[in-house]
Simulated assay, not measured.
Amino acid sequence: MAAADTIWRIFLQASAARLDETSLMRDVGVLRPKETGHYGSKPGFRCMHELIMHDGICRRLDCWRWTSLEEFAVSEPSWEDIEAMARTLAHNYIAAPQCDMQYENGLLLNKYMLVYEELSYAMNSGDIGRVETCLVTWIPMFKATGKHKYANTMTDFLCKVHFVYPAGLKRAVHYHIMINPTGRKGKFRGVDWCVELNNLFTKVINGGKGSNHTVLRIIMESPLIQIYRNLHTMFQNDFLHTQQTTRHAEADMSKMFQVLCRQMKKHSPNEIVKGRGSYYSIPDVLAKGQELMEKSNIDNEDRGQEAAVRGGKDERPSVDDVAVELVW
């Protein structure tokens, strides 16, 4: 959720960032024409997640000069072709400064969307090592967009897991970062989601009402939470209410993708138009965040030297140490 909000802060929060024909907000106008106001006023996680996924698909199709997913599928690319296309995307459409501000903004959008999708895929797949590797990239981005608590907490967590906890505790924490309540492929979730769900049942639904909503009542009811949930499930199954949910099937976006691809072809967000200006220059928050963290590390080193002079110890690891640990 924090990663999706970071994308919103970078590309949608500033009013000037929404004015270019190649901006993310113009894509919102095609994909979600009735919800532009909602996206301009800090939407929730699900809305941003779907926007990033859908817009990312269309932008990569535009990079590869395809007009639809169907056309791409008909070409029946081999795995070698897909790898070659991925290398082309990484070399030409992520980081290549040119004299075209809208093109440069588009490069950053491609870059951060790919980083987001990698994190999302790793989390859904339960690939814990890959999640940690992705977080090393996201921590500076959190720092640069004002999410200091996220950045500091994640840094502290990764450093403790890799350099402080004993082997047994490290393994236990590692294998409980992600859980899969349903047991289905691609359905891993962060453990905090289940913790918050349990808190909902414990404190809100079964925690009493009015004057009965006390700590003593919550403690007394907490051992029975699973029994209550089992009873609810049994009633739902007996009365055939299992299908009466608010979850809908994924929307068919093929027509909207075609419209958006035509718009991108018209305005050329992934082609260099020399001299093309922009109402807003998207900041490189990754570089900015790394600069802020380097400055913080220097300050910590200075304090560590002062502590060493006084006879103390200061051997606190940093995100860079975690990155080296993960790579090697």
Results as ranks from 00 to 15, higher is better:
residue 2 A to D: 06
residue 4 A to N: 09
residue 6 T to Q: 07
residue 9 R to C: 03
residue 10 I to N: 01
residue 11 F to R: 15
residue 16 A to C: 01
residue 17 A to F: 04
residue 18 R to M: 00
residue 19 L to T: 11
residue 19 L to R: 13
residue 20 D to L: 08
residue 24 L to D: 08
residue 26 R to D: 12
residue 29 G to V: 08
residue 29 G to L: 08
residue 37 G to L: 03
residue 38 H to Y: 10
residue 45 F to L: 05
residue 51 L to A: 12
residue 53 M to I: 15
residue 57 I to G: 03
residue 57 I to M: 07
residue 59 R to G: 05
residue 60 R to H: 08
residue 64 W to H: 10
residue 76 E to P: 01
residue 84 A to Q: 08
residue 85 M to N: 03
residue 87 R to E: 12
residue 88 T to S: 12
residue 88 T to A: 08
residue 92 N to E: 15
residue 92 N to Q: 15
residue 96 A to R: 15
residue 97 P to F: 05
residue 98 Q to K: 13
residue 101 M to T: 11
residue 102 Q to F: 04
residue 102 Q to Y: 04
residue 110 N to K: 02
residue 113 M to T: 14
residue 113 M to S: 13
residue 115 V to C: 13
residue 116 Y to I: 02
residue 116 Y to S: 06
residue 117 E to N: 08
residue 122 A to P: 00
residue 127 D to V: 03
residue 129 G to Q: 05
residue 133 T to H: 02
residue 137 T to A: 02
residue 138 W to V: 00
residue 138 W to I: 00
residue 139 I to K: 00
residue 148 H to G: 07
residue 148 H to W: 10
residue 148 H to E: 10
residue 148 H to A: 12
residue 149 K to A: 12
residue 150 Y to G: 01
residue 154 M to D: 01
residue 157 F to H: 14
residue 160 K to P: 03
residue 160 K to M: 07
residue 164 V to Y: 12
residue 165 Y to R: 05
residue 172 A to F: 14
residue 175 Y to I: 06
residue 177 I to L: 15
residue 180 N to F: 04
residue 181 P to M: 00
residue 184 R to L: 10
residue 187 K to C: 10
residue 187 K to I: 01
residue 188 F to V: 03
residue 188 F to P: 08
residue 190 G to E: 10
residue 192 D to W: 04
residue 196 E to I: 01
residue 197 L to N: 13
residue 204 V to S: 13
residue 208 G to A: 01
residue 209 K to D: 12
residue 209 K to G: 09
residue 214 T to M: 03
residue 216 L to A: 13
residue 218 I to F: 00
residue 224 L to S: 15
residue 228 Y to E: 12
residue 230 N to T: 15
residue 230 N to A: 13
residue 233 T to C: 13
residue 236 Q to T: 05
residue 236 Q to C: 05
residue 238 D to G: 09
residue 241 H to G: 15
residue 242 T to Q: 11
residue 245 T to W: 02
residue 251 A to G: 02
residue 252 D to A: 00
residue 253 M to I: 07
residue 254 S to P: 01
residue 254 S to Y: 03
residue 258 Q to C: 11
residue 260 L to Y: 07
residue 261 C to N: 14
residue 262 R to S: 12
residue 263 Q to V: 09
residue 268 S to K: 10
residue 269 P to R: 02
residue 272 I to Y: 02
residue 279 Y to M: 05
residue 283 P to E: 05
residue 285 V to I: 11
residue 288 K to Y: 06
residue 295 K to A: 14
residue 297 N to I: 01
residue 299 D to H: 07
residue 300 N to A: 14
residue 301 E to F: 11
residue 303 R to T: 12
residue 309 V to L: 14
residue 310 R to M: 14
residue 315 E to Q: 15
residue 318 S to N: 14
residue 321 D to L: 05
residue 321 D to C: 04
residue 322 V to A: 00
residue 323 A to I: 01
residue 323 A to F: 05
residue 325 E to T: 05
residue 326 L to F: 01
residue 326 L to A: 02
residue 328 W to F: 06
